[in-house]
Design a protein around this nucleic acid. Sequence first.
DNA 1: GATGATTAGGGTAATGCTAACTAACTTAAT
DNA 2: ATTAAGTTAGTTAGCATTACCCTAATCATC
Lengths: 138, 138
Amino acid sequence: MAKKEHLFIVFENLIKIKSECSCEIFSECGLSDITMKQIGYLKVIDEHGDVTFSKLAKITNHSKPTITEMINKFARMQCVYREKSPDDGRIYYIRLTEKGQRIARAEEKALLRVIEKMADSMDEKEMESLIKLLEKVR
Amino acid sequence: MAKKEHLFIVFENLIKIKSECSCEIFSECGLSDITMKQIGYLKVIDEHGDVTFSKLAKITNHSKPTITEMINKFARMQCVYREKSPDDGRIYYIRLTEKGQRIARAEEKALLRVIEKMADSMDEKEMESLIKLLEKVR
DNA sequence: GATGATTAGGGTAATGCTAACTAACTTAAT
DNA sequence: ATTAAGTTAGTTAGCATTACCCTAATCATC
């Protein structure tokens, strides 16, 4: 029992470090009060290449005007910009700015920072045994 | 480099398991679209014992009517109830129901479930070395 | 009279919609 | 090949709902 408790504390610490890292990233971008929903949309845009307004409307199950409004807001926040399709003048691709991408990938980045910290505090052999231990959890 | 990447994947998996666990808890409670803010309030109520309306107003830096409304909403969601003070008829304590407590502690509970999974997949000795390894990260 | 909670009534912003429109493309008929 | 008639992509206008917060007034209790 004591071991589980101990492990709990250790992990709580790790998770705290990670969430501090992601908050850091949001405030680095000057977007401390971005919502979970907004981050979700940025992730969708990040994950699907060449997203158009209609496509995003379908993916997120929203109307086209809703998407227009959302993208306008993101554009004002300098997270996205429109890129006109060279083949079809009606179509605009929604592209993430560097800032938009940073936000979309903040969780990933935060985890990476934590991994860096780990790597700094242990040697190759220890890393290896850590991986072996955690790999088993399903 | 490869080791870090590997560790990244392993941790990503753990985090995914944990967030699945907390989503599970919210949907077990029939509150899949509860907001972060609401969870925050429930946590405040959970952490401070004997919270009154005025006290919660002070803690959260909101007006009393705002608190009344918030608590009414939580009461409708069956997350809290009022308990009249035996000493002072003007005072009501805000108490979490079992459901409210489950929500307030969902993150904690989710982590516990993951720890359980870990404990299931390794022996005492392995647990010990895992703790030793992760303890170093600051 | 002071204090704790509520009620009444209001404001703003987020988030979503439908309907109508413009611009750009496609098709089909001449 | 041209042009008229659709179709499609995105935008605009206008509206509804909900979240979230307030002040002022009220009621009950101390």
